[in-house]
Amino acid sequence: MLKLVVVDRNSYTNFVENHPLRNFFQYPSWSDLKAEWKWSSEFLGWMNSDGTMVGGTNVLYRKVPGLNKFLAYIPRGPLIDWFSTEYTLKDWFHVLFHHLKQRNVFSVKIDPPLIKKKWSSDGITNGMLQFQTHGLKNKKITDLPPNQVYREVEFIQQELNEMGWRQKIADDSFDTVQPSYIYRLDMANKGLDQIFASFHPIWQKKINQAEWEGVEVSVGSLQDIHEFHALLAQEAKQEQKESRDIVYFQKMVEKLSKEDPTRIKIYYARQNNQLVSAALATRVNGQVWDLYSAQLRKTDHAASYLLRWKMIQDAHANGDQTFDFRGVSISLDEKNHHFELLKFKVGFAGDVCELIGEWDYPVIPMLHWAFDMYMKKR
């Protein structure tokens, strides 16, 4: 039988460090960052009959104005044994629901880091050529046969549905809190020469071109976040989209680097002393995420290719097995404003991964549905 308890920061961090699904959202430092924007949090641990912690999660809480009720969000979690033969999903979640009710939570959202399907870069590229050859429009990656399907994750989806969880059905990857389709490069048991050779030939040429043209990539001081943000804000203005203010990035650097000095890095690519591309990366043991990036002009600058190659080289040198390019659109329509981003990432010979998605559970059904209706009418 499982028991759910509040655990201290150190015990929770030690558990996360050793969990195979660990990710930066589930570390305490992410809670520290969100606390700056009115989210409270706590660290929970599932204990077995021997008192051993066998599951854990970082839960974020947001109070509803005017009510003593809370929304709960578990980003890229919880970190449990989803495929356990000893415990069912009901065993894991019923104790969680009981705890959340005591915390006056009426609705909880999760988006577990479980991969449901994968499409290879070659498969996507070949599929796009076939669609173009036959004049087929409005196609998506999901119209292509995946290279891998994880039936055990489909079973998890089925179990969540039967428990009363409801998946948010989104038209595209960026319609959920976290992207539901991501692009990952698997580096496990591969040398750098092998990784580079797998890139699309044009991507290899772009990287070499940037070096030949004198582009220099360096890791900047975390105190120079203003330079990164200025480029990000400039790009946002050019593309007529919103960007987070500099305070958010200052707090991110402060909170994440305090927990681990290697948790966050800023990469700069300069040509003739001018900043032309930049990226902010975050890391936990075994995996790196390309979290935010920007470039000087809305053009296909070779510097951005070299910058990613430098990030991949550093990740490989640190023994990391996965380089995560984060979200991609599934639209293969060249007019879609996310298409160029997908095209850029696909050349790095990774996989588009469909995650299990975003799920909501009505801890207090009447309040959950009332709030849901209110949000839909806004």
Results as ranks from 00 to 15, higher is better:
326 R>D: 07
269 A>F: 01
21 L>G: 05
333 D>L: 09
318 N>M: 15
330 I>C: 07
333 D>E: 08
4 L>A: 08
195 I>F: 03
216 E>F: 12
334 E>A: 10
201 P>D: 05
288 V>A: 05
7 V>Y: 04
149 V>D: 00
240 Q>R: 11
103 R>W: 11
348 F>D: 04
239 E>N: 15
309 W>N: 00
319 G>K: 11
33 L>T: 02
83 F>R: 07
267 Y>I: 05
289 W>V: 00
41 S>K: 14
274 Q>K: 12
373 M>F: 14
8 D>S: 14
28 P>T: 06
299 T>P: 13
217 V>G: 02
305 Y>E: 03
73 Y>G: 02
286 G>L: 11
188 A>H: 13
342 L>A: 06
95 V>P: 08
160 L>P: 05
25 F>C: 12
266 I>M: 08
335 K>F: 04
132 Q>L: 15
129 L>M: 15
70 F>C: 05
279 A>L: 06
292 Y>G: 06
70 F>K: 03
274 Q>V: 09
121 S>T: 12
33 L>N: 02
136 L>P: 07
8 D>G: 09
360 D>M: 09
76 R>N: 05
192 L>K: 09
356 I>G: 02
59 V>A: 03
371 F>S: 08
333 D>C: 11
3 K>S: 07
25 F>Y: 15
136 L>A: 05
192 L>I: 07
15 F>H: 08
357 G>E: 00
223 Q>V: 11
41 S>T: 10
135 G>L: 01
206 K>C: 04
234 Q>Y: 11
99 H>Y: 12
244 R>E: 07
20 P>K: 12
153 V>W: 04
298 K>G: 13
331 S>H: 02
62 R>W: 09
16 V>F: 04
236 A>Y: 04
143 D>T: 00
239 E>I: 12
218 S>V: 11
140 K>N: 01
253 V>E: 02
273 N>L: 12
187 M>G: 06
206 K>Y: 03
105 V>R: 02
340 E>K: 15
186 D>H: 15
210 A>I: 01
212 W>A: 14
85 T>W: 13
234 Q>I: 06
272 N>D: 01
155 F>K: 13
288 V>G: 04
